[in-house]
Design a protein around this nucleic acid. Structure first.
Lengths: 208, 208
DNA sequence: CGAGAATCACCCAAAACGGGTGATTTTTTA
DNA sequence: TAAAAAATCACCCGTTTTGGGTGATTCTCG
């Protein structure tokens, strides 16, 4: 028989917490090993519980979920964390993902979805609810109506990566003067007159 | 009665194409209005078909799916495109998402998942299979063992955004000399001696 | 064919950079 | 609470990069 997935729930709303606990306990290969109403209460016990997956709320008394994320990741590198919250603002989502969350679910997700997500992150995968997916995907989308040409976009991207004109010229096998020409044209098209403004404008309008 | 979601399938494998067509036609509010074996064949007919959602394969004779993406987006701005392919390399996924794909599914996705994805993108949402979600989420994760301090990370991030030391100093309400100090320390910690190297190294190691 | 794109050239002054060295004040943490 | 780490500011130096102006040639694609 397979060892069950060890799950810990950190959620300050007792009703919700109890609900998850009951529902997840019914899953054969899941084992809810502990439930806490705040991260501060969970902190010391977590290493003993050694969960495979933690369902973590964001809004909590004391240390909130986002603050807890890096602390948990450091103490339990092999534990996968799923953020489970009612909030889905882009800022919170990106913050959670950069801090190492393996999943981000909003609380309107149905049970099947949550169970699927737990299994997924348990095997090193990723999981997010559809509204979170939308936010994440939008963050990738480039503006397809850029006034910049292919070459100009290419060069501005490299500038945004901190490369100097000389380095860019070497990489593209063109003269540094040519790079300067392109840059000047970029400035005109974007109506700016410095590197930083160009990068800022181009990023804001999603040209790069 | 609600108008059904108009779906077009562009897929060169006839067996797969036929399979999707049959399965999706059975869904009440779905209407598969056309099926093409290549984008080049679909091109002119697409505007007439005016689909809400297009299932687009990547590997195809002639114009491939990724090349087709921007063309479709330009011609039919209100049509949502779901990439449906066997490939899931990070490069392909990011390319597809930046070019405006609303969904990215691998062909091992089950039918329920595909139907759910079509409904989701039909209402402006996003959809991706779990393996794609994993790729996307990994791309966000920062290295939590950065040698850089909070301030140093903050400053290096701004440098990576093209800001000059003077601008950074103004934004952080500190002296430009202090910014220089931080930058020098960053260079030492990352073992580099220029802006571009620092950005490159920091990005490669996911410190920023 | 003709327009936009990409290429290269040379002028100039101002700004930014990278390196060195040292010091003070907060903040963190063991 | 004492030591360590982080954050702050200062002044030296020579070199590189920047932004602006102006113009010209070649390429490419519809």
């Amino acid at each position: 028989m397979k060892t069950p997935l060890r799950i810990v729930i950190i959620e300050d709303d007792e009703i919700i917490s109890m609900g998850y606990q009951t529902l997840l306990s019914e899953v054969d290969d899941f084992s809810v090993v502990n439930v806490f109403s705040s991260f501060d209460l969970a902190r010391k016990q977590l290493e003993i519980d050694a969960p495979d997956v933690i369902l973590l709320d964001i809004e909590m008394p004391g240390t909130n979920g986002l603050q807890a994320l890096p602390i948990i990741k450091k103490a339990l590198p092999n534990t996968h964390i799923i953020i489970l919250t009612v909030f889905d603002s882009p800022e919170l989502v990106f913050e959670a993902l950069t801090m190492g969350a393996a999943g981000y679910l909003t609380k309107n997700s149905n049970v099947a979805k949550i169970i699927e997500a737990i299994r997924e992150v348990g095997t090193g995968g990723g999981a997010m609810s559809t509204n979170v997916a939308r936010i994440v995907m939008h963050s990738f989308q480039k503006n397809l109506d850029s006034p910049l040409t292919k070459r100009e976009t290419e060069i501005l991207t490299k500038i945004a990566n901190g490369q100097t004109k000389a380095q860019i010229a070497a990489e593209l096998f063109i003269d540094p003067e040519t790079v300067r020409s392109h840059v000047k044209n970029i400035y005109i098209k974007l109506d700016v007159n410095s590197k930083s403004e160009a990068i800022k404008t181009a990023k804001a309008k999603r040209f790069i």
